[in-house]
Design a protein around this nucleic acid. Structure first.
Lengths: 337, 337
DNA sequence: AGGTTTCACTAAAACGATTAACGAAACTTT
DNA sequence: AAAGTTTCGTTAATCGTTTTAGTGAAACCT
């Protein structure tokens, strides 16, 4: 590989001059600069990121921690979209992204934090992990700039979907369509789940509807089989709900399968409401009624905020950015009466 | 950050000794070694990947080029699975992965190759790109070890699905179910597409079935709308096909929508056959009849072969690894007669 | 006692860049 | 014309490692 030294000797100048010429410092003469740059191009010079980072203490490389223990990280349509959008934005700013390895049982692995230190990431984005994992907490508490998606820590910038808005919109829509017996299969406990449950109950109460305990069930996020089982339980209740909320779209498909296998129809017998707005759902009939989170905006905000934290630490505040989504009216909700 | 130098002065030994102790060289005494290692741990030492790579000429970082111009890279369920599997395997071997940025119109961007050189990737995996893009070709022709997924170059190791097996299995299955009027909406031209088309025609011929020209249509991969439109054309033919093959599962869903909007039923009026076996399809009814590519195995093979090329260049052959998938019998194929 | 091995460690160069400090012309001032 | 300013480069230190060659002391042999 051709280095500054090669260019220097080719041009009969010092290495320093070459460095300055290529970085457009003002103390190199115009034609010297031009000559050096031309030679660099002709020789096929490419800077060495490692060498550069040693001097500048900046790698222009961001760490991505993006995986739960179900390992559905990249295959999670919604988070893949967020990451895609994040990636696009940071690349525009000259950053690359590298995954923080997450396989907990590889021999010789180190903690997330040590991995991040080893690669000297300038910043880190965290999403879709166990946020109470001590290793994750350690990472968040470190001096490396961090942005989290969809989970609130103190002292950390967070980008999150407007879950309150989402649940409110869905509840309103369902109630407007005449539903009164509404069940909610919610995801496993987390700050997001709690927000959704509270909002769900509160909004229904405002509509004068109380939700019986047996209508509130827990089933993991993105677990179609769990949702399937839980839906069967709901359908066997003496007072069958007319509408079921799901923790996410995948779960909703599991639920719809249960409804169909019971010999019932969606939405004629049971209405179904998802959450997320996964892309593939737009191509499948019946179209799922759901709340589409704005993955692009989430990724964009994560990128912008992280880069601000890195490049302008003095003037950047830690904050929570809430991103609104929108109601997607599909064909899985029946208008009653 | 604590460096070798800090440990050295703490232990009253030279930097060289510390380096050797941590790397377990044989010429450091046992108790010195132990003392140094303990101190390193206590001081929270983490090696600096950049410094290390400068001396060793190895970054233990692999480049990933994984994006077509539709930017459906990460959101492509199938390729996300491949990448996930690839990632897991290389991490086991101590490698990280970094994306080669693909946004062609960011100011100051360099070619894929230059990006790869800048980061000094030890190797590169390429999938789902325009393989005839000059920049991709340049990358493949470079001296950096490369493995491609699903595209054959000379002199490059390729991991590919057994498209011949896939099409044969699907054709056999469809014919066994009594279909004779079989249309094929195939993807845009590529080595994979060509293989599939040739196999499709050949196998049907062996079954004594000739496919009229108007049954062969082209529509881009993963384009639900294109598939929708093309399906409408097929349904309007005087001799409507009884079964339609699609380039992939997404396209198949687009096609199914067209069938339904025509007031026809899948599979009663028109049977539908996909390709890929995307995960979400297992949760949606009707279940798509398709050929499930073994994404995990593809990723695993890509990882193993790439690492072999990097670590054992002398003894590793460039080769083509073919990975079989399996027929997924769903509910979208009707048994005729 | 002198010579040879072995052991445990150090010195120093090198990887490829950046940058503060310095210096020699050349050009302005007064 | 002496002094001050620009202008354009160079020198040398440095980032954190690895590695080759070398060193001195102890241990072994004869």
């Amino acid at each position: 590989m051709v280095s500054l030294k090669d260019i220097a000797s080719q041009c009969n100048v010092s290495v320093a001059t070459v460095s300055k010429a290529l970085n457009d410092h003002s103390d190199i003469g115009a034609e010297t600069k031009a000559r050096i740059r031309r030679t660099a191009r002709e020789m096929g010079y490419v800077p060495n990121a490692a060498a550069k980072s040693m001097k500048t203490n900046r790698t222009h490389n961001l760490g991505v921690l993006f995986m739960d223990d179900a390992n559905s990280g990249l295959q999670h349509d919604f988070f893949a979209s967020v990451l895609e959008s994040f990636k696009k934005e940071v690349e525009r700013e000259g950053y690359d992204i590298t995954f923080i390895s997450n396989d907990r049982n590889t021999p010789g692995r180190t903690s997330y934090l040590n991995h991040a230190r080893y690669r000297r990431f300038d910043g880190i984005i965290i999403a879709n992990v166990h946020f109470d994992d001590p290793e994750v907490v350690e990472l968040v508490k470190s001096d490396i700039p961090v942005v989290t998606i969809d989970h609130i820590y103190n002292d950390t910038t967070t980008i999150l979907s407007d879950n309150v808005d989402g649940i409110n919109k869905l509840v309103d829509f369902v109630v407007e369509n005449g539903h009164k017996k509404i069940a909610y299969i919610h995801g496993a406990d987390s700050s997001v789940t709690r927000t959704r449950i509270i909002t769900f109950n509160k909004r229904l109460e405002e509509h004068g509807i109380t939700v019986p305990d047996e209508y509130m069930r827990e089933s993991p996020y993105r677990d179609t089989h769990g949702a399937y089982e839980t839906t069967l339980e709901l359908l066997d209740l003496p007072e069958r709900p007319t509408c079921i909320f799901y923790p996410d779209d995948y779960a909703a498909y599991g639920g719809m399968r249960a409804v169909m296998e019971k010999g019932l129809k969606v939405p004629d017998d049971v209405s179904v409401v998802g959450f997320d707005g996964i892309k593939v759902a737009r191509h499948i009939r019946p179209r799922l009624t759901t709340y589409r989170q704005d993955a692009d905006e989430l990724g964009l905000q994560a990128a912008k905020n992280l880069i601000d934290l890195i490049e302008r630490p003095k003037t950047t505040l830690v904050k929570q950015v809430v991103v609104k989504g929108r109601l997607l009216e599909g064909d899985t909700l029946k208008k009653l009466n």
